[in-house]
């Protein structure tokens, strides 16, 4: 089972937010928990999600593959989800994405050799006034007004954390 006893309690609470018989509504929140615990969503984890929500596994696959936040392949410990949409590009996002790729020596979606990082360009994060912006799961804290120096510091501190 992909979930700890504590998580299972939490899932029970989440299911109660929805009317009786509508527990499938808990799917997105539970997938977020599963990914927070496992880093990504392997098939057996998704099957366990189906089991705790009493739905067919295909219903989980359909949903997990629709939404872009879910990683269906192993990813680095820190997924740098950096915005690539128009407004951020007006303030330099494109060159920062290139800078990040050069710095970490990976392409989009790849994992760095030390297993720490994956770069994942994403669409507008509703931070256009404070762009360029990136976020890192599972807490998804925003790092705004990015510059090359700020990226250097961020990468340094994450490497130090390991």
């Amino acid at each position: 089972m992909a979930f700890s006893a504590e998580r299972l309690e939490q899932i029970k609470e989440i299911k109660n937010r929805y009317p009786a018989g509508k527990h499938k509504s808990a799917l997105l929140p539970v997938l977020h928990l599963a990914q927070a615990d496992h880093g990504w969503l392997p098939i057996d984890v998704m099957n366990d999600v189906a089991e705790v929500l009493d739905i067919h596994p295909i219903e989980v696959y359909e949903v997990a593959t629709f939404y872009t936040m879910f990683h269906l392949k192993p990813v680095g410990k820190y997924v740098l989800e950096i915005c690539r949409t128009g407004p951020c590009c007006l303030v330099g996002a494109e060159s920062l994405i290139q800078y990040l790729k050069n710095k970490l020596n990976v392409e989009e979606g790849e994992v760095t050799a030390d297993g720490l990082f994956t770069i994942k360009p994403v669409e507008c994060l509703a931070s256009c006034g404070t762009g360029p912006v990136l976020q890192i799961g599972p807490d998804y804290i925003y790092k705004e007004n990015l510059t090359e120096e700020k990226l250097d510091q961020l990468i340094e501190s994450l490497r130090a954390k390991g």
Binding site: R17, P29, H32, Y67, T68, F70
Partner: peptide, 12 residues
């Protein structure tokens, strides 16, 4: 009244 927050998953 009960009020809950529901997270999306990444989809405009």
């Amino acid at each position: 009244l009960d009020l809950y927050v529901h997270p999306g998953g990444g989809a405009y």
